[in-house]
Design a protein around this nucleic acid. Structure first.
Length: 322
DNA sequence: GGGCAGGTGTAAT
DNA sequence: ATTACACCTGCC
């Protein structure tokens, strides 16, 4: 039997798991032929499905499993409901239109250690390879959980891993970063759990001291692992979305984008980021005249700058809200 | 095959 | 403070 998860109807499982915050979920065919999401959270191997809106926990269907999954998905009664978040975000006309394509994305309550490592690995990398690397790390250094599943490696295990092994996990030049981070945690020089209770900017400073952690990785760790919902990671997709949807395609620095997000979305900035990110990935293809910011080449003929009415119909952002 | 991929560290303005 | 460049490695 499977358990119906109360409150799961507002969550879009596929969108949430594919929204770039986690790299450890896979899709399988269930007995009935429908898609089943399989993922490891802590020491649980969860199997979930969502037909229409109803969200089902297939396994492990135990009281403890239900409680842990509910917490992880952010659909516990204590959590702020997704509908109220989306209603608040829709006060912004741009996000209101984005939401039509992204509704139901939640922010998972992941283990900050796993998030930290995952996003160190994500730097200058592509998603299929990130998933492969994380999977190999778990197989090589994580506790076996049965069904061919493995827990995420502890800081101790990762801190003691041989370079040869990390290379076999395809970490490349990031291997020393990952191991240095592991040692910080293993030695007790850094306690991630404490960062969740610190002010955003203070916690961010701490994370930036970790090798391999820049602003983007720090913000992802804050948002996806440490419950800092006002964090606003700026990657290439979010940059593209903000520049095109709010600034008529004009370049902005990461700092400007973050300042904008903080002003406009406050404690919901992290959720806004998720929606903008997913919208950009699905609907805002790269264009010759954005991000790369290479100097124009000779003979470029003055480069056709498009007028850019805005992908969403020409809404002009009011930068500072009234 | 060469460039790119959810950036970061480092050196040089 | 800002800018340029290299970087493991699999994939398109």
């Amino acid at each position: 039997m499977a358990a119906l998860l109360p409150g799961g109807d507002a969550l879009d499982l596929a969108r949430t798991l594919q929204s770039g915050q986690t790299f450890r979920w896979r899709w399988e065919r269930g007995p009935g032929g429908g898609p089943v999401a399989v993922g490891v959270v802590g020491r649980d191997v969860f199997r979930l499905s969502q037909d229409g809106r109803e969200l089902w926990l297939i396994a492990p269907d135990t009281p403890g499993g239900r409680a842990r999954l509910t917490e992880y998905l952010g659909v516990s009664p204590a959590a702020r409901r997704i509908p109220s978040i989306e209603t608040a975000l829709a006060a912004d006309p741009v996000v209101a239109r984005v939401l039509a394509r992204t509704r139901g994305i939640g922010i998972l309550a992941q283990d900050p250690w796993e998030v930290l490592v995952s996003f160190i690995v994500s730097a200058n990398n592509n998603i299929p390879k990130i998933c492969t690397s994380i999977d190999r790390l778990c197989r090589a250094l994580g506790a076996p959980l049965g069904e061919g599943a493995f827990a995420f490696p502890t800081p101790d295990r990762l801190a003691a891993a041989r370079s040869r092994m990390l290379a076999a996990c395809l970490l490349g030049y990031r291997a020393p970063y990952v191991r240095a981070a592991a040692r910080l945690i293993a030695d007790g020089r850094l306690e991630l759990a404490r960062l969740a209770r610190m002010p955003l900017d203070t916690a961010r400073e701490r994370l930036l001291e970790i090798p391999g952690v820049g602003e983007k990785v720090a913000d992802c760790t804050l948002l996806f692992g440490l419950r800092h919902t006002s964090a606003f990671p700026v990657d290439v997709w979010v940059r593209r979305a903000v520049e095109r949807l709010y600034f008529r395609g004009q370049p902005r620095t990461a700092r400007q984008i973050q300042e904008f997000a903080r002003e406009r979305f406050g404690p919901l900035a992290g959720y806004a980021q998720q929606h903008l990110f997913c919208y950009a990935r699905a609907h805002l293809r790269p264009r010759a005249d954005d991000a790369p910011r290479r100097p124009p080449m000779r003979g470029d003929g003055g480069g056709a700058r498009r007028p850019d009415r805005g992908e969403l119909g020409g809404y002009r952002a009011i930068v500072a809200n009234a």
